[in-house]
Structures are given as C-alpha cells and as structure tokens.
C-alpha cells in the first residue's frame, strides 16, 4: 500500500471523526475481543452443555454454518459499538479536559494517564451499576 495512501486515509478519518471516532472504534473492538475471549475461554470438556467454547458454534443443537456464526458475532459487535458510543459520550461529558481532548483542542494529549484511568474507571462503574439494575 503506498505511503501517501496510508497518510491520506488516516488524515481523512481523523478529520472527519477525530479523537472521538478513534476511541469509539477502539472501544468497540476492545469490548468485542474481550467478550469473545471470555465466552470462548469457558471450556468444560466433561460437560459439553456447560462448555461455552463448544456451544459458541452450536445453533439449534447443531454446528452452525459460517454465516450463522458470523451473524452471531456481528450481533455482538453491534452491541459493543452501542456500548462504545455510550462510553465515549460519558467520557466526553464527564470532564472539561477530556472534552477538550475529544475535540482535539490541545496540541498534546492534555489528560494524564492517572486521570484518564480514574475517569474511565468511574464511567465503567456507572455502566456496570446500570446493567446490574437492568438485570434485577
């Protein structure tokens, strides 16, 4: 791939979607990988009915087709995207400095690692609590 095309595509994305768009995509993919990894990691070869790594590929008690598995993964990804948008919105609204970062208003990344982690932690705790309430 020519370097000028790499540069053009990055520039085009960042101009149109900015830091907010980058974080939304990053979180979508992060949640997705985490969810898939977690589901597939629960393996119990003695009890196939409890083996999510195995059941992941089962549809109506039969091994699903490629399309069925992809559709299932697509549904998970769609939900991860919804969550990512929600998280980015919460981050943007939760703090003045983060709001500036999202808008790309500062020359350097102006939020410290510690502050970002703290902010992110609070956002996820809020999200987690809301989901716990929804489950009840």
């Amino acid at each position: 791939m020519p370097i000028h095309e790499i540069e053009k595509n990055i520039k085009e994305f960042m101009e149109e979607h900015g830091v907010k768009g980058f974080l939304t995509l990053f979180f979508t993919n992060y949640f997705y990988e985490m969810t898939i990894d977690q589901i597939k990691s629960y393996i119990n070869s003695d009890k196939p009915e409890e083996d999510l790594g195995y059941q992941y590929y089962l549809f109506d008690e039969e091994i699903g087709s490629y399309d069925e598995v992809r559709e299932f993964e697509g549904e998970i990804k769609e939900e991860c995207r919804n969550m990512a948008e929600r998280v980015v919105e919460e981050l943007e609204n939760a703090d003045e400095e983060m709001d500036k970062v999202m808008k790309g208003e500062t020359e350097e990344l102006s939020i410290s690692e510690e502050d970002f982690q703290s902010l992110l932690h609070n956002v996820f705790e809020t999200l987690h609590e809301e989901i716990n309430i929804d489950q009840k």
Binding site: Y30, M34, I39, I76, M83, F124, E125, L127, I131, Q135
Partner: peptide, 11 residues
C-alpha cells in the same frame, strides 16, 4: 452477553 461481559470485565 456483550452488555454484561465487557462492562463487568472493565469495571
């Protein structure tokens, strides 16, 4: 699954 697993993990 997605709504529960990811926030639980990260939180």
């Amino acid at each position: 699954i997605a709504r529960i697993v990811a926030p639980h993990m990260i939180a």
